[in-house]
Every structure is written in structure tokens, then in C-alpha cells.
Design a protein around this nucleic acid. Structure first.
Lengths: 231, 231
DNA sequence: ATACCGACTTTAGTATGCAGTAGACAGTCG
DNA sequence: CGACTGTCTACTGCATACTAAAGTCGGTAT
């Protein structure tokens, strides 16, 4: 069966222009994360549109999604404002993340194949490397990649849809404290991966709960310290 | 036929004061729940716009949000399709709901005032009444109201933002089995409220876990039975 | 001097128009 | 008769134009 010269299809459909609304969405998140847009700032549709070189339409659609994801607050007849997270909110967010990640670790232990586990170890390596390189951005990225993959392994589409919403915001808040937390975090990751590899849901769950709890505690202590200093 | 805004009277006109996109959003969810729009159906923006008596713009924005909430699938350059939930997905959704509700019950036990508890008992009464009246729709509504209020009591804004996304969909899938599950469910509710009233986080959590787990199990058995019958 | 009222400006909300693309159908060639 | 290709249609994606409302500033009257 000479499957015609369609063999090139393996190359995938040629680079498709990403929908503008998606590009705008990504661009705005990037701007929020790197501080170009500061919390509380009023986002004027026309300005964003001009700055990004598109019309207001894609900007509006992106803002809708950003609201749904909790990045901006959309006040009726008044426009969009970059969401200003409070300390309580960060704590709450970390709490919710903990619960979801814990659940996802359980699922991962039940469904992961040997190959999946191998991939986890690869990501673990990358994290260790980032830690050694002392690159905060890379650490956070590797952390997100590992957790995302665990979520994926749980084979739960709903979870996979929900967690990124939470996780991306955690990533934003978490960046400043990624370095000091890093060392312990990656040791704990190793234990979790082992539990998943053994297919032990209870232990995976317990370890992940401990891990996320410690991250939350660490974050709270850092915040408390920071407030203590600034006051 | 000539464009007459009266044609859409069947689905009711849209009240102007609230943003159109919001009205359209609600109207579409209602249509999906009550079956006017069937799973898998292709939603043509222009058609919806005409039927609701608005332009395509608010319809587009509503569809964006509907995708974010998991009600429709938005395929690039092809439009919106009513999401067709699979059995696995329902199970997964119920699983995620379970962990979120469990977490929220713990929070509620830690924060609820006597007044909050009184409100819970009122909602419980309403649920019992709906059960007695044998009104499936009212049962589901009362159930949602009770769970929503518990979520609120946990004083967790992130949770309060996330759960409705999940819960509204659960509500959709759950309606058919609400009646047989109702009796036990409301007895369990009473126990949970008691635990919250006593401010006992561990017991509240355990009871809610049990409650949601039983609901999930019940749902799975019903589905299995339905498949068994139809095969 | 201050408080209230009204026009003005700015910006979100909504409608419509245009172009690009995917899918369907029919005509044509092997 | 079957498969391929060219065309045709219908829909989405994006842009622009218009409308309505909220906020602001200046003026006037008390």
C-alpha cells in the first residue's frame, strides 16, 4: 500500500497561523507575569489593540478568557483591570492547588506506564539541572512541567482542563520564592515519582499532599517575613 | 421570512440592562440543559444571533466563555459544537467535584457562624420539600443551592470561582438520577450540616467525602444499568 | 465658597462588512 | 466506473463603524 506521497504528513500540517485571540491572550499573560502590566492597572482595549497591532475584537475575546482564568477583573461598562492578588487569595489558591494536585497524583499512580515514569525522571533531571544552574525561571518552568505531566498521567480530562488555570497563577506568585524552596521540593519530587512508579496510589497521594502543603507553608512564611520587613 | 424579533419569543426576549453576552451565555446554557441544543450539534453564530435577536458579536463572546466552562467545543475556523460528554468524563467530573467539595466542607466547618448554619438548615428544609413534592428539577436546584452555600462558607474565593464551573455541569448530567438518589443524599446532607455546625473540620470533610463518593458510585451504577439495558 | 447641575470626553458595548478558509459537490480524466 | 481536481458555498475570523453609558470638568446658583 503505497500510501501516496502523503508520508510528509508526518511533518504535520504546515505551520498554521495561530488565531490572533490566542496570540493576544498569551501576550497579555506574558506581560502580566513579567510586570509590563502591573496589578490594578486599567487595561484600555483600544490601547492594547494598537500596541499589539491588531483590532479591538481579538483583544476583547482575549480579555474575556483572561477574566475566566482569573488574570483580570472585568468590570461592567468600565473595562478590564489587571487582577491584584491578595495574600489571602494566594493562600487559598495554593490550598486548592494542593487538593487538585494530590488527587491527580493518586490518579497518576493508577495509570502511569513504565514509559510515563521514564519521562517523569527526565523532567526531574531537568529540574535538578535548573536548580544547579540557579536559574529561577527555569526552575519554575521545570516544576510546572513536572506537575503538568503528573496531571496528564492521571488520565482525567477535567482535571487537565482545570489545573492549568490554577497552576499558571501559582506559577506567577511562586516565582519569587522558587529558589530557596527548590532544593527540598525536588527531593520530594523524587519520592513522589518513586511512589507513582510503584503504582501506589495511597503513598503517591500522601507524598503529594505533604509536598504541596510544605510549599504552601513555605510561601506563607516568606510572605509573613516580607511583610515583617516592609512594615 | 422577514426579520421579526418576535420569532424568538419562544426562548424569551433578553433583558437589556444586563450585558448581552451574559444574557446570551445564560440562554445558551439553559438551551443545552433543557435539550433544545443537543450534544454534538453545530452551533452557527448567525443562526443563534438571529434566534436570540442580537448580533453575532455577543454570541461570539458567549461562545468563548462557554468553551472555557466546558459547555461547547470551539474548533478553529469551524465553529462551536455542543460538548458531548462521555461516560468517562462524567466520572472524572464527579471525581474532581468530590475533592473540591470535600475541601470546601472542611473550610466551611472552620468558618461558619451560627447564622450561616441556620441558613444551611433552611436550604435543607427546601430540599426535603422538593423531595416530598417529587420535583426532579427542584431537587437538583436545592442540592446545588446547598452545596454552593457550603462552598461560600469556606471563605475561599478561588474555590467559589472554580466550583460553579464544575458544579453546573454536574447538575446537567445529574438531573436524570436526582430522584432515586435524593432520599439518601438529603439524610447525608443533614449529617454534614451537623458537623459544620459543630465546627469539626475532620468530620465535615469525611462526611462530605463519603457523600460525594456515594453520589459518584450511584451515578456509575445507574449508567452501567442503562448501558446494560440498551445493549 | 461650595454644592449641584449639565455638557463634554472617553471608553465599553454592539452591529455590520469583508476576506480567508474549510468542506461539499460536480465535472473530468484515467 | 472510480478517483482526482477544480469550483462553489457557507461559515468563521478579523476589522471597522456606530451607539450608549460612565466619568470628568467647568459653570452657575445659592
Amino acid at each position: 500500500m503505497p500510501e501516496t506521497p502523503m508520508a510528509m504528513a508526518a511533518r504535520g500540517p504546515i505551520s498554521r497561523p495561530v488565531p490572533l485571540r490566542q496570540a493576544v491572550y498569551d501576550a497579555l499573560i506574558e506581560m502580566i507575569i513579567n510586570g509590563t502590566l502591573t496589578p490594578g492597572q486599567h487595561l484600555v482595549e483600544a490601547d492594547l489593540a494598537e500596541h499589539l497591532g491588531v483590532s479591538r475584537q481579538p483583544v476583547r475575546e482575549a480579555l474575556q478568557r483572561l477574566q475566566a482564568a482569573g488574570w483580570v477583573d472585568l468590570r461592567p461598562a468600565q473595562g478590564a483591570y489587571v487582577h491584584a492578588p491578595t495574600v489571602e487569595e494566594c493562600t487559598q489558591l495554593l490550598g486548592v492547588r494542593a487538593v487538585l494536585e494530590t488527587y491527580s497524583a493518586r490518579g497518576a499512580a493508577q495509570h502511569a506506564s513504565a514509559q510515563d515514569v521514564a519521562r517523569l525522571w527526565e523532567l526531574q533531571e531537568a529540574g535538578i539541572a535548573a536548580l544547579a544552574a540557579d536559574d529561577a525561571r527555569a526552575i519554575v518552568e521545570a516544576n510546572a512541567a513536572l506537575h503538568t505531566h503528573i496531571t496528564h498521567l492521571s488520565r482525567n480530562a477535567v482535571l487537565a482542563e482545570l489545573i492549568p488555570q490554577v497552576d499558571q497563577r501559582v506559577r506567577w506568585y511562586y516565582t519569587p520564592i522558587a529558589k530557596p524552596r527548590g532544593k527540598d521540593a525536588w527531593s520530594e519530587h523524587a519520592l513522589i515519582i518513586e511512589a507513582i512508579a510503584e503504582g501506589d496510589p495511597d503513598r503517591s497521594e500522601a507524598l503529594m499532599r505533604q509536598h504541596t502543603q510544605r510549599t504552601t507553608d513555605f510561601y506563607c512564611r516568606q510572605i509573613a517575613a516580607a511583610i515583617g520587613l516592609s512594615d
